[in-house]
Design a protein around this nucleic acid. Structure first.
Lengths: 335, 335
DNA sequence: TTGTATGCGTTATCAG
DNA sequence: CTGATAACGCATACAA
């Protein structure tokens, strides 16, 4: 494959002139440029990105580490990040971590290895205990709920407020015994625990009791687990008239589970989710949910990262950005 | 940031020995190895991937160019490709082309630039006319329906046969006036036209007429367009008792559109899709569909690519792989 | 406006 | 088992 040298020889100029042509430097005479372009075309020259990266110390690529791409929420987020990165001419490489702490740390070290100019890391496996590991000398933006106040920029969803608004919406629609379907209960802060806090606050605000048997805790936030949860609740004779689901994916499962056992939504039970994934509008019944403004989050994350990539020094203070949300009211809560 | 040289000095050995330790070469004395590992840890050494890539002429990364990640089908495919690539220790960088021919060619040239060791290219914008452009000297696997018999390996879905089976299933369930909801009608071969062929074959095989007014052609294969199509069909007084949707995404929209105008599925109209995206199982009603075995396709594509990456010469003959399919019967066709 | 010299960090080769 | 040397292809700084 042709190198810059080959082109230089073919065009009868120096390698440097070829480089100047490639990079659109102004100080190249038109005639020279033509000669070079012609030689490049003849030899089918392609820049060697690896060499350029080495020389420049930049790759023009940022990493995006998410638990899985095959999930509407992260897929949507990834698309938004790619779109936002385009404005900075940054390529995005998506890394799947499978929600494991180890893989998240791997992603972190890959960007340390200068494979990426920076990293947007969606933390699910890593927790507050890992904050120290984020003290790296290259740009990182954390996207998620697990780590606050770390030594890096942070973009988060309005989990507590959004969950509170969702629950409050159910209350306003007349629900009095509101269940929540959530992920595993653990020591540490995660999406489920934050949204549970919002749920609890809404109940308290309305003077409703927090009944432990109304809180369903599942192993994983999947369609299947959501469906099973719903069937279990009904099968166990639980009395409830509303469900706040920790994510839309879970809510889709819950809708299906309720249908399986003949419970009508929204007549008998009202359901609300969180995320506003694209499909939610087209379900039957369409799903009420919280829209956390993914696009804004993605844009903010990329902006922060791009800003850090420019500067030489670590940069003093780190930003915490929490996006705004809106309640999207659809058929599943009586529309 | 520490280089291999710094480590060498700190450990009192040569750079080469450090390199040998890093790459697990056998001929390093234990004591030496320890010294080096110790120095690496002290200096927090990280390999510079750009330098390694330059030297090796490999990046360990393959590109996956798809129209959009924010679409259940491609998201699922991407996840499967990532999983398959892992077995070869290959990283996957997802490139969004937005279904534009230009962006697809961009992706092609990026891998030519040695950003990637190879490329899996999902062609939607490029067509048979662009076959010549695929004659590149580095590994490419085409994933899609637009280009057959090109100068590269090719993995495709069982479009015609799958569509025929889907339509036939509707016929077996008693449908006699079967509509098809598809993408734009054009000169060239694409997913819609191939699946339309299958649809036509099934009708002919059953001795049913192909009624032009039963074929709905939409601008884009989206949820929204699917919903509108369904509403339009009903509003225009069209008489139909079954719908074959060109993709599951479209089918989800169609189910919603039928619900909007009070048509019951499967009692009045039966619906079947194509792709078997994860959500289809959890819809209300759950969606019958064709499962083209994404995992197999992804694995095959990665296997082919990995095989080409190994070899030095372009390799003579190119493989055409068409995956198998199965009909998944669910509630939308009467379960 | 163009060319020369140099080094980015790594590893293959081969000699010690 | 270890080390010296060179080269991967490009772009910065400076000289002409």
């Amino acid at each position: 494959m042709a190198t810059i040298q080959d082109v230089a020889i073919a065009a009868g100029v120096s390698a440097m002139t070829v480089s100047n042509v490639i990079n659109d430097h102004p100080n190249v005479r038109k005639a020279t440029r033509e000669k070079v372009l012609d030689a490049m075309a003849r030899l089918d020259y392609r820049v060697n990105v690896a060499a350029r990266n080495l020389r420049k110390g930049r790759t023009g690529t940022i990493g995006l580490a998410v638990p899985e791409v095959n999930s509407p929420y992260y897929a949507q987020l990834a698309a938004a990040v790619i779109a936002a990165a385009e404005r900075y001419s940054l390529r995005v490489c998506i890394e799947q971590t499978g929600a494991s702490r180890e893989n998240e740390l791997d992603a972190l070290s890959l960007s340390r290895n200068r494979l990426y100019d920076g990293l947007i890391l969606s933390t699910v496996g890593m927790g507050p205990a890992d904050v120290e590991l984020l003290k790296v000398d290259h740009p990182v933006v954390i996207l998620g709920e697990r780590i606050f106040g770390g030594p890096v920029d942070h973009v988060a969803m309005p989990n507590v407020d959004g969950a509170q608004a969702a629950t409050q919406h159910l209350i306003e629609r007349g629900c009095r015994r509101i269940a929540m379907v959530r992920g595993p209960v653990g020591e540490e802060v995660d999406v489920s625990s934050l949204r549970f806090t919002g749920y609890r606050q809404a109940l308290r605000g309305a003077g409703l009791p927090l009944a432990p048997d109304l809180v369903q805790s599942m192993e994983a936030l999947t369609l299947r687990a959501g469906a099973r949860s719903a069937r279990d609740m009904v099968a166990s004779g639980l009395d409830f008239d509303g469900v706040f689901c920790v994510t839309d994916t879970v809510a889709i499962g819950v809708l299906r589970g309720l249908a399986d056992v003949g419970v009508r939504v929204p007549e008998q039970v009202k359901v609300i989710g969180f995320d506003n994934v694209e499909e939610s509008e087209f379900l039957i019944p369409s799903l009420s949910t919280i829209d956390p403004d993914h696009d804004m989050m993605a844009r903010r994350a990329v902006d922060l990262l791009a800003g850090r990539i420019g500067q030489t020094e670590p940069g003093a203070d780190h930003e915490e950005f929490i996006s705004h949300f809106s309640v999207v009211i659809r058929e599943s809560t009586g529309g």
